[in-house]
Amino acid sequence: MRVMVIVKATRDSEAGVLPSERELAEMGQYNEALVQAGLMMAGEGLQPSSKGARVKFSGPNQRTVTDGPFAETKELIAGFWLWRCRSMDEAVEWAKRAPFQEGEVEIRPVFEAEDFGEAFTPELRAQEERLRAKIESSAKL
């Protein structure tokens, strides 16, 4: 299974405080362990929300753009990993080893077609395929 490990923002990350050399070294070591265990597929750190923007949707045509920063620090994201692991339990065990002193990470399994089980019938799958194809062709216009 694939999981996204979402690293929540902290006051420091939102303030744009860069990690110390020691923190970088620890994170490097941790990332290396993830790579060596064959888990790591991708991972990035994000700049503070002050450099970001939001697009809000209301109805088919109405879009409102808001520039950062955004207030609710604990709900913001400061980075993510994409891991391939065997179970949520394994992901949790690995996440516990992350060299953070504070804050929180959230682990969310990535949807796979199999997750929809029998409710995702061949007909529905076919429909999904058609939709994807349409999305793809409209994206090219």
Binding site: Q36, G38, R84, R86
Partner: peptide, 17 residues
Amino acid sequence: PELCDEASRLGRILAEL
């Protein structure tokens, strides 16, 4: 897929070692 995943993982481990 579980066998593919396992092999990919072993391969990555080997490449790192």
